[in-house]
Structures are given as C-alpha cells and as structure tokens.
Design a protein around this nucleic acid. Structure first.
Lengths: 295, 295
DNA sequence: AGAAATCTCTGACTAGAGTCAGATAATGGC
DNA sequence: GCCATTATCTGACTCTAGTCAGAGATTTCT
C-alpha cells in the first residue's frame, strides 16, 4: 500500500515533468537562459529582496550577483540597497522589465491553455480538482513544526489569523480578554510551548500548550490555514503538542472550544478527546474535552 | 472558468516541480551529471534502442553519442549494432550498470517514500487517487489522432486489443468472421479511414469508418485503452471520425454494438446517437444506432 | 569602540549541456 | 551498381551553471 503509493508519485513525477515541466522550461528560456528567466520571473512575482531570492532559487551568492548585474545591464531591473539594512539589496523591475515579465506570463498562460485545450469543461473541472487536492496533500506532507517564541512575528501572524477567524465564526464575535503579553508568557517554556507549522516557507498553522496544574496541560490557539484543512494537519499538530505535553510530565490534557467549530470538534473526537463538564470560565467556550496521555 | 483552470495547472506546476522535481534531479545526479543519469535511467527502464533514446530525451545525436561513450568507458553499458539494421545501435546494461541502475531506483523510491512519509494512510490513498486522475486527464489532453493504414503495426496492435476485450466481455466470446485483410480494405481510403490515437508515443485507442452506401457511413472498431476510459477520449475520437465522414460526403452515420458494452452505449447516446432497428446481420450486434450529420 | 557576523560583489575557475559541420557506414529504391 | 537517405560518430566550438576564495560595506554583539 505504502509501496504502491510512492510509485504513483514517481510515475506521476516522470510523466508530469516530461509533459508539462519541460515545456515550461523551454517557454521560459525563449530568449534568455533559464536561470536568468527564473530570476526575472520571481522578481516579477513580488519577491524583491535579494536575500530571499537567493534562498528561494537556491543559488550561490556570487552567481546570483552576476545574474542580477546581467538583468540590470539589460535595463530590466534596478538594484538598490534596502533602507532598513544597507547590507541587503532590493531588486525592482523597471518599466521594460515589467513588460518583459508580462510577456513571460502571457506565454506561460497560453501554453497552459493549449495543454488543457482539448479537454471538455467537465474534465477541466475534474483536473482542476485533482490538482488542487494533490497540491494540498503534498503541501501538508512537507509541513514542518517549529517551537517559536509566542511573540515572534510568525506566531503573531498565525494568532492574528486565528482570532480573526473565530471573530467571524462565533455568533458573539471573539475579543479574547487575555492581554497578548500574558497569553504569550504562559505558552512559553519552561511551562508552556508554542508551535508554528511551516510549508514552503509560509506559516500554515499554530498551536500552544500551557500548564494548568500539576500533571495537567491545556491546548490553546490551535489553528490551521483554511486552504489546508482536511488534509491531516490538525491531527499532526495535535500529536506534536501531545508529545511536548508528555515531555513536560502531563498525564491529562484539556481543551475548550465553541460549538460553531464543528470540524475541530470532530477532529478532537477522532484524536481521542472525550467531552467533559465545564472546567473553566472562558465565556466563549461551549464544549470541554479531555484526553489521558499514557506512556 | 477556462482561465481559472490554466492557472491551477500553472500553480501546481510551480509547486510540484519545486518540491518534487528538483529533489528528483538532485537524487539522480548524486555522483554523475544529470544528463548521464537520465540516460542510464532510461536504458534501465527498458528502452535500449539508441534512436528512441535520442527522441525520448530530446538530445542531439552527437551529444548522445558522447554520453553513451562515457557510460561505456565506465563499464556500465555495452553498445552494439542492431542485427536488423546495422546502422542503428542498441545499448544494454552490463552487470555493473544494472547494479548502478538498481541503486538509482532504490534512491528514488526512498525519496518518494520520505516525501509521503508524514501522511496518514487515508491521505496517501487520496493523494494516489488525485495523482492518478490528473495523470489520466493530462494524458487524454495530449492525445493526438493520426490516419494510418489499417495494416500498420499500430493499427494491428489496437485492433488486437479491441478483439481481445470483446472476446472477454461478450457472453458468446468474439470471433469476428471478417477476414482481417478484407476488414482492412474497407477501412482504407478512399472510401474509409482508420484512426489511431497516440499519447506519449503509445497507442491509446483506435476507430474506423467505412462507407455503407451513398451518403451513409458506419463506425467500426472503436476502442479506447481501459486505463484511459472516462476522460473524454471516446467522444473526441467519435467527433474526429464524424469529421472524416462529413468530408467523405456522408449525411448519416450508423453503428452497431453489444449490450454488454454499457459505457460505450452511454457515450453514443451522449454524443447524439439514437437507437434504431437492426440494419445488418452482425451476429454479435444487439443494439443499432444512427446519427444525422448536418453541415 | 572593537570584534564578529552578515550580505553582497568580484575575479578566477571548472564542468556540464548543447550545437554544428562534416565524416563514416549501412540501407533502400531505382 | 549507383545514389539518396538514415543512423551514428568525431572534432571543434559556445554558453550556461555553478563553485570558491576573498574583499568591502554594514550591522550586531559585547
């Protein structure tokens, strides 16, 4: 089963890169070398910081520098120091560069259109769905967990999304009483932990654990990016937090939630959480769960 | 809608090649350059004819020759003239080459396993299905039609599969009375036509058209490879045959079929074919259809 | 303020990827 | 048997991709 699965991925990879990828490369490198075209493409897509470009494209700094100089001397980009940190540099498209980029885009678009051209609307829609599903699952597969300071920018970004969503979904809105600073303190080592999930360099979820009393922990701030729900990230995040709880010596984990969060509730139940009586006075909570940790 | 669709394909392509493809390249080129590794890989997969290798990998003949010589001097392959045509050459793996290839395979397999490692069995199965669907639809999208001599090897291969399948599915078995030679003659220009569908260099379906009487044609030998059913190849093949029928001056198209071929029957109905009375004495036929061609 | 670290650039390389023109040998058509 | 065609090989190139060491300019740490 797992065997069969990996070979599907490999077969698909061969077919796909041969059919789509190769064409894509050739289109990009129409008039200029592939490396240069990829760089121009990335700058046009919005990544202007040279440092980020280097890591995203996986290039040697010397090599990238030369590529940038090449594009600059062609008049397609302008490279200037970052005012925030003058060691860093920022590349922006000139008017000519923008035009060139638009052309690359259009060419890529036409190619993609041509590839799906023979398909009926029904099969286009099915292809769309299949690719979206595959992409979501692969993104989930490559997600990584990182313990971060709850005050870090990644954590703040995730929690802000968490709060915004609850505010949208709760009938009463959501305006948590905890001062963020205090909230951060309890989710911080040594008594707590705050995890951020990353995939492809972007934050895709978060979750925190705090100590309630001796041997008892509480899950807080669990959130998964909406576009990535239903692909198993929630259970993995939960399992990760449970691992930390065990290491902190907890034997029992609690959490509270709101009745409108039906998917989350279903996931808690699937993951072995059982409903219990109210254990706190959180005004937004309508359901309470516990799970005993063994081992 | 069509717009949204092409961008899904493009987005997927970017994500996928970045995540999977790049890794795959790196694994292949562990100890040797990518071009050499790809060549070794293809030979190991079973393509031993140098001519085919060149077209599959899209390489210059001089370049390929040098790559082959490189592998040969490393003792990984042996290149010999093709006994059937001594201009052509055939490359075979030596024992060492086979071992090397197995290692490449194992490395690729481990990589794929690692990529899907974090997924639950449920999500692996879903990924599997999504990739299979996408692959089938993309294969269908890249299918091309070619008019061939019904006696050509591609046509014979397809018709043999057609007959084998009907023999399996008909309760009575299928042993068509037509002498193949006569059968071929009626599906040949100027009065008939025989089409073969190709995708990725492989035959994926066929269909023939013959003249019955003035202004009336008949569809024969329609077949689509089983692994590619349900992705719209049948209707496209049918439409193609109808185009030929129009050009040959037919105003009415007939076809017969057997009740066990339910998917085909559904497709004929969807494509505008209406059931009519028996019009021939084909002992295997149980249903008869017609379609009026306009324009 | 001084030292260490960070980011970018330059110069000097190497190797891989690919092109092109022509040579050589075998085949197929007349 | 002769000629055009086909498949491969060789030599002589070019250009891209990528590496490495070290220099300069800034920033951060102590």
């Amino acid at each position: 089963m797992a065997q069969a699965n990996a070979s599907t991925l490999r077969r698909f990879n061969r077919q796909f890169t041969q059919r789509i990828g190769a064409l894509d490369d050739r289109f990009l490198g129409q008039n200029r070398p592939l490396g240069t075209a990829r760089l121009l493409f990335e700058i046009g897509r919005g990544e202007r910081r040279v440092l980020k470009l280097r890591s995203r494209l996986g290039l040697d700094s010397g090599y990238l520098s030369r590529l940038l100089r090449g594009l600059e001397s062609e008049g397609l980009i302008r490279v200037e120091p970052d005012p925030d940190d003058r060691r860093r540099r920022i590349a922006t498209l000139t008017r000519r560069g923008q035009r060139e980029w638009n052309e690359l885009e259009a060419r890529s678009e036409r190619l993609a259109q041509r590839l799906i051209g023979p398909l009926s609307p029904v099969h286009r829609a099915r292809l769309d769905e299949a690719l979206l599903t595959a992409d979501r699952i692969l993104t989930s597969a490559s997600a990584t967990f990182r313990v971060v300071d709850p005050r870090s920018s990644d954590a703040a970004w995730a929690v802000a999304h968490y709060i915004r969503e609850l505010d949208r979904r709760f009938e009463t809105g959501f305006h948590p009483p905890d001062a963020t600073e205090e909230d951060a303190r309890i989710l911080e080592p040594p008594d707590g932990v705050f995890l951020v999930m990353h995939s492809d360099g972007a934050v895709v979820g978060c979750g925190g654990l705090r100590a309630l009393e001796c041997g008892v922990g509480e899950i807080k701030r669990m959130w998964v990016r909406e576009s990535l729900r239903g692909v198993g990230l929630g259970p993995r995040l939960l399992a990760e937090l449970e691992g930390h709880a065990r290491r902190l010596g907890h034997r029992r984990l609690l959490l509270d939630t709101n009745a409108t969060l039906t998917e989350a509730i279903a996931m808690y139940r699937r993951s072995g959480y059982a409903e219990i009586e109210r254990y706190n006075d959180n005004p937004y909570a309508q359901l309470w769960f516990e799970k005993m940790l063994d081992g």
